[in-house]
Every structure is written in structure tokens, then in C-alpha cells.
Nucleic acid binder design. Structure first.
Lengths: 245, 245
DNA sequence: GCCTTACTATGTAAAAGGTACACATTATCT
DNA sequence: AGATAATGTGTACCTTTTACATAGTAAGGC
């Protein structure tokens, strides 16, 4: 979906003037960093990789790369995700830019953070260079650059976002039990929820499809499996009004 | 509040390596644009200025400027606000970056949008260059660059944000009546609200201080004036949990 | 086959919060 | 003095949230 903000038939000299202006703008190295969350063993995980900067040897960093000439930020983020995980049918949201002048030891580099959630089992990490791995969010201590701060802000973004949008289903198998769904919410929000009320809440939304299958290979009574009704959700997005602070 | 991500005592050669790396990064011109909302005559307004680019002659644009070398984005935004309005004790939030390659006729320029709200009467615009003025949001049609899109996204950001944070008080006089407060919410959310329920809601939050004064110079029965209890609010920020989509 | 275990599934009562709605009051203006 | 245009307040109803307990079922060990 390309937009074109340039009006047609503007005289050449106006464009030339504009170009002359921009040529003198200071320029900054710009990167994109992706915070990719996954969920496994009832823990929220984040995809990290060993920094290839000697300066940050043995520190983990986010998946990031420079933004190419004439590349949109979104494009760059999708490219990075694709290159590293092979996935391309995944949503990716811009969270914010980070611009501290000392955030990179090599000089000023501004980065824009993107956030994505994906199902760990849907996809094997093909590249194992630099120890690419899913790391538990809870024991992610030091990271290269300001990446810990970026992760923290993306986590806060996620906590808020998942309460208002059905993001969580990207982290689960297509068919999931209510228990799995609740575990996910409990892990992300770091709270414990009442099971009956949780189920009632989702029942009242009427967005889960009972597919008449049962869990397999669980060491206890299996629960029913559901799918999320994305179609119905898309149709019924509502504007939320309610002052509350 | 400066952060320092650089660890002490790293060998010089590591820094040199990092610098060599960054030197080869592609570089992009970067700007900041401020979407500054105000409220007057029961209308939400936005501060705009005639574009000084001949290419966009007679089009309004946002207050923006390049980001200087080694300047943080936040700093740049505050600088612009200060330069243009004289204000410096105002909050300013980053909304997001815009990166379409054709958004600027002079070539690729990435911009980061910031949003702020300020009280129109607290402050006279000192500079009237380029027709700097408060423009009604509702009849802001064409703008230079992608600034209309930026305004739209910041407006959406504001609508959401004002329901969860007491931003609105930045747009009102320090002492305000409940009617003014309600008008503000109605204007921003573009809905009409029941007066009794609106008052009840704010009464139950217990964040308004009845200052025992009355409106002056209104052509009807004057209402009570209130102040917002920022102190109490700061102390009692709560974590909101509630799945809803 | 029976018992234990560990989970699933479900309902109800009380509290809190949101919505809809009407009437008396009080400054101002003429 | 009366008309006007607001302010200020209360109640009944409905919806949502919260807290909480018991019955049912598959698996696993004996």
C-alpha cells in the first residue's frame, strides 16, 4: 500500500529547492530492533542473539539491523523478522524510537523498536548463529546497548495491548485449551486470575469457537480445545469509551 | 536524567571497532514534528504554521525541525516547543515515527511525531511568522507533507490517552467548572455525555478539589470552580487489569 | 477394577459500576 | 417580575465484576 504525498505537476525548480534543503540536513544512522515475544512452558520468552560487537561480547541483544536507503521502517522490521525467523505472515507494531546519544558505543545511532508475538512451535529457528534463542523474559538481566530498556518498554506495551486486542492468540497453537489461554494471560500480566471468571469473561465475548476436540497427551482429564474467531472479531471491533484513571 | 550505557574501562580498540562499524551505516535526515493541541471555544485546536517550503506554499504544516547532532529526540521536541511557544514546563510524548520514502519532496526524511496539549490562554504566541496559529482540528483539510496523517494519528492517540490519563487538565485553566471539563471531553472524544453521570464519575474519582469559588462573567447561573488534585493522582496511580476487546 | 490424583466444568449471590432519566434552584437579562 | 439558561442533585435499573464450592472425568498406580 504505497502512498504518494507528492502532488503531480509541481515545477521542477520547487523539487530542486526542496532537495537543496534536505541535502543540508544532518544525517543520523538509523536501525530497527525487533522485540519478538514467544510463549513456552508457561513463560513469556523473547528472541535474543549474542551481540556480534566485540564490545558487547557475550551479551545478548535484540534482532536488529540498519534501515536501508529508501526503506520504510515497517519494511525493515519485516525484513529482519523474515531473515531471522523465516516468518513473514506475522504482525509487527512500532513501539517507539530510542535516541540516547550514548546508546551505541560506536557513536550516535537511533533505533526504532518493533514488537511482535509469535508461536515458538510454529517455527524452528533455522539460523543458530550467534546463539539465537528464546530467552526467558524474567531472567534477562544485562543486555547489549540499551536493549534491556527497549525490552522493558515493549513488555509494558504488550501488557497494555493484550488487554485491549486479541494478540495472545499469536502465541498459542491454533487450537488451545482455556487453561493454556489463561496461563498466557497470567504470564504476561504477571497476575493470577480466577479460573471461573476468566472463562466466563471469554464466554461472554463469544469469540472462541468450540471445535469439539479434546486435548491429547495430558496427564489428567483433557480440556476442550477452541479456536479464536478472528473473522467475527474483525467485524465487531468497537470503539471503547470510558474515562478511567 | 542522563543515562550512560557505556561501561567504563573498555579497551580503546573495542570502541574503535564499534566506531568503524557505525561509520559505514547508511544515514538518514531526521526531524521531529510536534502536534500541539489546544482547546478554545469548545473546540479542539492544533498549532500549525505555513510551510516555508515553496513546494507547499500556502499549506499548513506542523511545528518541526531537524534533530541536531547528538540531540535526543525528546530534547529536540522540547526545543521546538520552546522556540515556537516559549513554553518549557509542558509534557510532550513521543507518538511514533513516520518513514514513507516520499513523504518529503526533497528526498527521504524520517520524522518522529510528538504530541502535547497546552492551554491556549496561558500563553500568547509570540512569533507570528508564517501565520503561526491555532487551527480548528475539524476543518484541517490539506496539509504539507504527510502532516495530516500525523495529526490524525496523534488525535487517535489523544482520544485513547485522555481516557486513561488526566491529560485534559493541561488544556483548561487551572480553575475550571465541570461544564468546561465535560465540554473538553466531548470535544476530544466526539461524543456527547450525560451531565449527571459525568459529574458522578469525577466525583467518585475524588480527584477534583472544590476551591469554593464561582465562575465569573458567565451569562447564566455560575458554576463552582475546581482544581485537579495532581498530587493525589500521582500517589494513587493504579495498575489497570481488565481484558476487553 | 478401584482408588487417587489432578485437572475440567459449571452456577450463584453480593458488590460495584454504568446508564437513563426529571425536577428544583439560581444568577442573569430584559 | 418574569423568562431564560444554566447548575446541582438522586434514584431505579441493568450490566459487569468479584468471590467462592462442588461435581465430573480421564490417567496412572496398585
Amino acid at each position: 500500500m504505497k502512498k504518494n504525498y507528492l502532488e503531480k505537476n509541481k515545477p521542477e525548480h520547487l523539487i530542486k529547492d526542496a532537495k537543496l534543503l534536505v541535502v543540508n540536513y544532518p544525517k543520523v544512522p538509523l536501525t530497527v530492533d525487533c522485540v519478538i515475544f514467544g510463549f513456552e512452558e508457561n513463560k513469556l520468552k523473547v528472541l535474543v542473539i549474542k551481540s556480534d560487537l566485540e564490545y558487547y561480547k557475550e551479551h545478548y541483544s535484540l534482532l536488529g539491523d540498519i534501515v536501508k536507503d529508501n526503506e520504510e521502517l515497517d519494511e525493515a522490521a519485516y525484513r529482519i523478522l523474515k531473515e531471522r525467523t523465516g516468518m513473514n505472515d506475522v504482525f509487527l507494531d512500532q513501539v517507539r524510537a530510542f535516541s540516547h546519544p550514548n546508546r551505541h558505543p560506536g557513536g550516535r545511532v537511533i533505533t526504532v523498536a518493533y514488537c511482535s508475538l509469535l508461536n515458538i512451535n510454529h517455527h524452528q529457528l533455522k539460523i543458530h548463529d550467534n546463539d539465537l534463542n528464546w530467552h526467558s523474559l524474567s531472567d534477562l538481566a544485562e543486555m547489549a546497548f540499551d536493549h534491556k530498556e527497549i525490552v522493558d518498554q515493549c513488555y509494558a506495551w504488550l501488557q497494555k495491548r493484550i488487554q485491549e486486542h486479541p494478540l495472545g492468540f499469536n502465541l498459542l497453537p491454533v487450537k488451545f485449551s482455556l487453561r493454556e489461554l489463561q496461563n498466557l494471560y497470567e504470564a504476561i500480566l504477571a497476575v493470577s486470575l480466577d479460573r471461573r471468571n476468566f472463562r466466563k469473561k471469554f464466554a461472554s465475548m463469544d469469540l472462541l469457537i468450540d471445535i469439539d476436540e479434546m486435548e491429547q497427551d495430558v496427564p489428567h482429564r483433557p480440556g476442550k480445545l477452541y479456536k479464536f474467531n478472528f473473522e467475527k472479531y474483525e467485524k465487531s471491533k468497537r470503539k471503547w469509551i470510558g474515562i478511567d484513571f
